[in-house]
Structure formats: C-alpha cells, structure tokens
Design a protein around this nucleic acid. Structure first.
Lengths: 339, 339
DNA sequence: TGTTAGCACTCTCGGTCGTCGAGTGCTAAT
DNA sequence: ATTAGCACTCGACGACCGAGAGTGCTAACA
C-alpha cells in the first residue's frame, strides 16, 4: 500500500515551472512543454509521473483529461506564501510616479490607483480609510474675479477642500483676509460637525457676508459626509480586457459592474490585518470574481488608520511583481499621507 | 422605363419605424415586424415593396439577402438632419447634475463627462479648449500643519490651481499673508509665462522663502503647460460593453484604446463650426470607430473660445435623446465657465 | 393602380458528426 | 528511477444539414 507522495525539491521546481508557464500563456501546460522549456534533462514521461503526483496532492488540476495541467488555488497559495515570507523588493518605477504634484487625499488616492494599474497592467483599487474627527486647522478666502472667492478649508490632517462662493463685490483681498482670520480664530480646533452646528449662530457677524457663512456650512457638511465614509478609487478597470480569461464579454461586464459598486468593492479589500494579503479565486468571496485574484497591501496613514492598495486580475498573475509594485506604492502613500 | 421612386410621406414613416426598431433591438428589421408593430393597416408585402424602394434609394441595406433591413448612414443622416432643424429640447435631468460643488475647470469637465455618460449610457467625451494667455489674478498661501502651506493661484478666467509646498516653520498665517500680498502685487496681471521668467530674479526677496518661490515656479510652469494644450476627458468608457455590436472583445478593445490616446480622441471631436455635429460611421474618420457615431455639441467658454461635449456610441443611437442631453450639458457648461 | 396572398428561393443559425492532434496513463525495457 | 512506446481520451475545428426567417416575384383582387 503506497502512501501519499511527498513533495520534494524536484516536484516543487516542476510546480513552479508550471505556474510560471501558465501565468505567461494562460493555456494548460503539458508535460512536453515542461520537459523542453524548463527541465531539459528530464523526459516528458518523467514529468508526467511527477505531474500526476502533484495532481494527487491537489496542486494541479486538469480541465479535461487530454489537456495539460493548470495550477490549482493551492498551488498559487504555496507559491504566494513563499513570496510573502521573503521581503518584497521595492519597485523603483512605482516611486517615480509620485514626483508629480499631489493635491490632497483624493488626488493622491486616484493617482496611486492609476500608477498601480499602469505599472501592473491590471485593475487597481485604492482605499482610503475613513477619518473621523477631522478638525479644522485653517480657513481662508482667496479673492477671485467677479465677486467670487475661493473658500479653502484645511484640516489638521492636511486634507484640503475648497469651493467657489459668491461674495459682495466690495470686499477686497484684505477684507477677505480679515474675515478669514476671524473665522479661523473662532473655528479652528473644532470638528467639522461642530463647525456646521455653530454656523447658524454666526449668520450676523459684523463685516461678513451671509453668503460666506453659507459657503462654509456647505463645505463643512460635505467634508463631514465624505470623511465619515471610506473612499475607494479604481484605476485601469478595462485592463481586464487584455486577458483571455475575459474574452467572454459577459464575464467582463460582470467584472466591471462589481467595480462600479463601492460596497461590493469594499468587500474585496477590507477585513485583513497583515501587510499583504492574497485572495485567490473563491477566497475573494465575490462570485463574479471567482476566477480572479485580489492582492492587497496595507499602508498606514496617521494614527493607526490603515488604507489598502490592491490589484485585481486573473488568478494567474505574476504575484511577485504585483506584490513589489503594491509594496512600493503603499510605501509612497504612507510617506505622503502619514504623520 | 420607371424612374427612381420618390420618397413620400409613407416611405418616410416606414423608414422612421425601421430606424426606431433597429435602435431598440440592434437586429435587422423585417417587413413583418413593421407591418405588425408600426403600420398595422398595411400588409407585410406592401411594406416589402416600400422597403425595396427605400433600399434602391440608398436608405436601407441588407446584411444578407434573407435578413431584414438595416438603416444606412444616409438614413440616419436624414433622420438626424431633421432633428437638427428643430430646436433641441433641454433635458431637465442633465441640469440637475451640476448642483454639486464644482471646483475648477477640470472638475467641471470631468463631472460633465460623467453626467453625460450616466444620462445617455454611452461613452462621453468633453473637451475644454486651450486657453492661451492666462493671467494671474491672485496668489495666496494658506497655512497648513507641520511647516507646509497650500499655494493657490487664481487666474483672471477663474481657473484655480494649488499645490502643497514646504515653508519655514516660523512663518505664521500673517506672515504668509504678507508674502501673498506682495507676490500678488508684483505678479498679478502677468501671464503665467512671464511669472515663470520673473521668478528667477525674486529668489532673494526679503522675508520670503526660496521654497515659496520654487513652489510658485513649479505651479506656474505646470499651469502654463496645461493651459497651452487642449484638455479632454472621457466618461463611462466601458458603457460600450452594453451594446451587442461590441460583444466582440477585439472590437471593444480597439474602441477603448482609441479613447486612451488623447490625440486620436481629438480627431473625433474637433473640426466643426456649428452648434451640433453628428458624424455617422465612416464619417468619423477613425477606422476603429467605423461603426460608431459621434455626436458633439459645442459650448462657449469666454471670449469666442469653444469647447465640445460629445457622445460616442453605436451608429444606432437615439439621436434625439442624445442631442438633447448634450445640449443641456453644453448649456450648463457655458453658464458655469462662460464670462 | 395600389394592395395583398402565395410561393419559391436564399441565407444564417444551431446542432450533429467525424477527423485531428495534443496530452495523458500505463507497461515494459533500460 | 527513468524513459520509450502505445493505446486511449477528449476538445477544437470544419463539414454538413435542417429549420426558420425574410425576401422578391407573380398573380389575383379591390
């Protein structure tokens, strides 16, 4: 009675070769291919025996009896876990991406998503954690032509929001600055919610327009609303069309429609503690993504809050490259957004 | 010897019915369909005769002998020209879209693109004309936590650009305002290019940081570069997958790749004088878009400069609805961006 | 003269069938 | 333990065929 075959070094090499080849070609890998391209001193028959063992062990699967083998979720996992052990090399290309001007949280987030998607050629997702308790640090009116002014609110975490409001034509730059000073003095240190509540009482402040107050109220309520929800951005969503597993339009559409619903997207990203997570196929928990993998890296932003950057692509994916790209972008984000 | 059949009222009704049906179903329309759904008092045989005439006239085409008829480019054009005659009804839904906060040109443009794509369910493109000779109107530094400041530049056309720069920790709000005033005084009225050139000379200004100067130089050069090129944004690009004519992934990808190249996109939009333009199929001049139509509306922004809003979709398109949506959004844009 | 019923004809679509080839598993030889 | 050889399996692909949709034409009819 034979026991379960053990997985030795050679089996591992072969498994690795199969994964690599499959990642490249997206076609089931046959024994001949391995024997010629990877293990040139072994015959196809030997490889066949090994492959048969690997299948018994659960690392390979055959779409049908006379096709080659395809790596199973277990195989990817083995491979990925191994990658996760070693430190992930930082990708220089990724860091360069952020030399551009960055404006505020949202801008950073979206350019991160674009950067990742361009580097990896997959779909990228970036999540910014919700920030409760944003406090106003400064508030300023910048004169604009034709009776307008730009109202800028800066919070203690460095988030910036602005909007154009109408003001009296006879307020010049200095007058606006005086108003700004006064408002900053009274409102700084308050949370956005407090600011909102306090504004009612101010509507008759000397020298200030009711319209200014209104503008601030609007802006404060918007910031408050936005800061209370997680923000999530997608980049390069149609990169998915580059991969043959999505040459079925229905599949592609299902995929894209998941991306359009923030809540379903959150499901893919959230709920992990470690720096890197890889969910393969069914592990994603979203049926439409059954043959996708989701790779995420977390980055720190300020006091213990964590955001995620991630890549969604076919299960066959060069996990090594993806991980290093994510790690680089995550690092850059931490630098930019962290305290 | 029979002459060319004339196009009478009934032929026109039938043609219209065929277009309507084809727009809905994307399937060649047969004579029976028309006789049952649209012209219930005529038999299919009669319709057949009429259709045969319409084909001879060039308004219909048959994909193959035993399929129904499909409207030709000429048919659409007839129909569209008729639409263009009458005034295009404004679409209420579109106007609502802009009640949101709008920040600056680019924001307006992108939300316009999104609005159009959501309303029409097609791909939307919005172009903002290049603005030469932008002049600085105001320039202000807003204090931020941790030795940063937000540098805001406002131009005479109301374009806003900002960036975060580092400044000496010991500059407080008033000091920053003093610098802002001084800079505004010296730089306002200058074009961005002039500002850029002048900044070299200022690097030793009393009380101001070299870093501030540097920040302004950066920002000015970016604004200058951006204002010299046309800006174009795409919204809802993957709406295209909703239409059966793009159930071929290769086609869809070709379509999307055109959208990714700004220059090819410009080709689709530019070069028209009238308020509305409809280019059908080959008229677009871009081979990948051979079975698309491009509908554009122009909007005025300030002194004679024109921008375009457009929709790209399959040639069978409810042109009436699309035109009214575009007209509404175009109007809103003129209001928001015009002088 | 315009409309309609009838009919033969054409062409696509969907399914079935048979061939081809890639790949396997097993056995026997090395 | 490895490998050559061979029979076998199964999907991909092209050929083929029948059904159905739609046409054009003709002849009858109002």
């Amino acid at each position: 009675m034979e026991g379960m075959p053990a997985i030795d070094a050679r089996k591992e090499r072969i498994l690795r070769a199969i994964i690599d080849d499959y990642v490249q070609t997206a076609m089931p890998v046959g024994s001949r291919t391995i024997s010629r391209k990877y293990e040139t001193n072994l015959s196809s028959a030997t490889i066949r025996n090994e492959m048969s063992d690997l299948e018994e062990l659960g690392y390979l699967a055959q779409p049908h009896v006379s096709a080659g083998r395809v790596p199973s979720v277990m195989a990817y996992r083995l491979y990925v876990d191994e990658l996760l052990e070693g430190s992930v090399r930082q990708d220089a290309q990724a860091r360069e991406y952020f030399s551009q001007r960055v404006r505020q949280m949202e801008d950073v987030i979206t350019s991160a998503a674009q950067a990742i998607s361009e580097i990896t050629r997959y779909t990228a997702v970036v999540m910014m954690p919700k920030q409760l308790e944003l406090r106003v640090s400064c508030l300023q009116l910048v004169p604009m032509p034709r009776g307008s002014a730009l109202l800028v609110i800066v919070t203690d975490t460095g988030a910036i929001r602005d909007t154009v409001i109408k003001v009296s034509e006879n307020l010049d730059g200095d007058a606006l600055y005086a108003i700004s000073r006064m408002l900053t003095e009274r409102l700084s240190g308050r949370t956005l919610q407090e600011v909102q509540e306090m504004l009612g009482a101010y509507s008759r402040l000397a020298g200030s327009d009711a319209r200014v107050i209104e503008g601030i109220a609007d802006l404060a309520s918007q910031m408050e609303k936005q800061s209370a929800t997680d923000t999530v951005t997608v980049g390069g969503s149609h990169n998915i069309l580059n991969y043959p597993e999505y040459s079925d339009v229905e599949k592609a559409r299902a995929f894209l429609s998941v991306l359009e619903h923030k809540d379903r997207l959150m499901q893919l990203l959230s709920g992990t503690d470690s720096a890197f997570t890889v969910r393969i196929g069914p592990e994603t928990g979203v049926p439409e993504m059954a043959d996708c993998s989701v790779v995420t890296a977390s980055y720190r932003v300020g006091a213990g809050h964590k955001g995620f950057v991630g890549v969604i692509g076919p299960t066959r994916m060069p996990y090594g490259k993806v991980l290093s790209a994510l790690s680089a972008v995550g690092g850059a984000l931490s630098d930019l957004l962290g305290e």
